[in-house]
Design a protein around this nucleic acid. Structure first.
Lengths: 106, 106
DNA sequence: AGTAAATAGTTTGTATTGCAAACCGGTCTG
DNA sequence: CAGACCGGTTTGCAATACAAACTATTTACT
């Protein structure tokens, strides 16, 4: 891939994943099987409201699944990446890598 | 740095640099002394309008300098990172790195 | 000479969206 | 049983990224 193509590709990076909060969410989730809402909130430092809306966005794009269940009497929300989601975040990091490398050795 | 801190930091990444188009611009510029408007446009694939406004934003933040001169009879616009800018993009990449790594080995 | 097209950008308008804050249904605590 | 806490969702607004329109000069064509 030429430099031009790499830079051009990065300039049109998928905003959905690239957005800082979601990049953090996706990356955090990619390292584990699953996590719950509160763990994710602690990890990212996001407010509940914003975490919630980011998760909904990722769910709509079918990059993660939101599983609600009961733990004792209260609801419990579990998040996990879909296969699609796992692939996307990997690919995204690869793109970032190649952008960085192409800048490194000129 | 703990995982929590890393993810939290990434969630609040500097949007100014992180935005795909500007990340491409900054990264491209970081690899050279300077570049002109058109080279940058070719590299990033951005339209003139958008490139222009991104550059202005980066200039306002003092991350790069826009030098206009005459080449023959027509104006010529040259871009180069400031010291500040050079530092910022480096730091940014380091942050991204540590985010990625912290996800890798869990 | 006149006009069309290219060069080198800037400005404007709009639709999107990220964030904070308000809200909501429950549960636990004194 | 009033208030605090838990686990979120919804709403409202301010910021902004992109496309499209615009400006101004220069070169090419006829």
């Amino acid at each position: 891939m030429s430099d031009r193509e790499i830079f051009e590709e990065i300039a049109t990076l998928e905003r959905l994943i690239h957005e800082p909060a979601r990049l953090a969410i996706m990356t955090a989730l990619s390292s584990v099987e699953e996590a719950d809402f509160l763990l994710l909130q602690r990890l990212t430092g996001l407010t509940k409201g914003n975490l919630s809306s980011h998760l909904t966005k990722l769910e709509n794009a079918e990059l993660l699944e939101i599983e609600k269940s009961f733990r004792g009497k209260r609801t419990h929300t579990n998040l996990k990446l879909t296969r699609k989601g796992r692939k996307r975040i990997e690919t995204h990091w690869k793109k970032l890598d190649s952008l960085r490398k192409s800048a490194g050795n000129k």
